[in-house]
Simulated assay, not measured.
Amino acid sequence: MSFSTHVLDAVTGLPAAGLRVRLEHDGEVVAEGRTDDDGRIQGWNPGAGVHRVVFDTGAYLEDTFYPEVVVTFLITDPDRHHHVPLLLSPYAYSTYRGS
């Protein structure tokens, strides 16, 4: 099973490169890193259960209403790839289950 994310900056229309992201399970950090030049993180392997992916948007955006975006999701099939994209702007964000 693997996990990936892709963050796009809706203001610039470009990938959000260098954004700090961490993955948590049972209150513990299981992975952390920064998005690459294409706004992506790939290859994390969180396993089954409830997880939280935390995006440090306050450090990335100069002026934002949302200093942190937390997406909580459930993995029931650990053999399947899970992708959580984030579309980001200073006063809004959206996410969905990707492929």
Rank of each mutant, 00 (worst) to 15 (best):
V53H: 01
L86W: 04
D26S: 10
I41R: 03
P85A: 11
V69Q: 04
R97V: 13
G98E: 05
P90D: 01
G58I: 07
P15T: 01
S2Y: 15
A10Q: 11
A16M: 07
V54F: 03
H83I: 00
L86S: 00
L74T: 02
P85Y: 14
N45W: 12
D26Q: 11
V71H: 08
S4K: 10
A48Y: 04
G18A: 06
T35F: 07
H81D: 11
F55Y: 15
G49C: 08
E32W: 13
F3W: 15
D9V: 03
H51A: 05
A48G: 10
E32S: 11
R97G: 13
L87Y: 15
R97A: 13
F55S: 05
T72S: 07
V11F: 07
H51L: 15
V70E: 12
R22S: 13
H25Q: 15
P90K: 05
G18P: 00
P90I: 05
D26V: 00
E68Y: 07
Y60V: 02
T64F: 09
E68D: 06
T5H: 03
L87S: 12
G43E: 01
G33A: 06
F73C: 08
T95M: 07
D63Q: 12
S89E: 15
T35G: 08
D63M: 11
G98R: 00
S2E: 14
D37G: 14
P90E: 01
H51D: 04
I41A: 05
R34C: 10
L61Y: 06
V11Y: 03
R40N: 10
Y91C: 05
F73T: 02
V11L: 10
P46M: 00
V84S: 02
A16W: 00
A10Y: 05
D79V: 13
Y93S: 10
G18D: 02
V70T: 15
V7C: 08
T57N: 04
A16C: 14
H25R: 14
V30R: 10
L61K: 04
G39W: 00
A31T: 01
M1K: 04
T35I: 07
V84R: 03
L61P: 05
L19K: 03
Y93Q: 08
S89T: 06
Y91W: 13
A31R: 13
T12H: 00
H83P: 09
L23H: 02
G27C: 04
T72D: 10
M1D: 13
G98C: 08
P90R: 06
D37T: 14
L23I: 07
T95C: 08
V50G: 01
R20F: 11
L87P: 02
H6V: 00
E68V: 08
A16N: 08
L86I: 10
E24D: 08
H83F: 14
L23D: 00
R40F: 08
I41V: 15
E24V: 06
V30I: 15
E32H: 08
E62C: 09
G58T: 09
A17E: 06
H81L: 15
R22N: 09
V53S: 01
E32Q: 14
L14G: 04
L19G: 06
G33I: 05
T76P: 04
S99Q: 09
G13F: 03
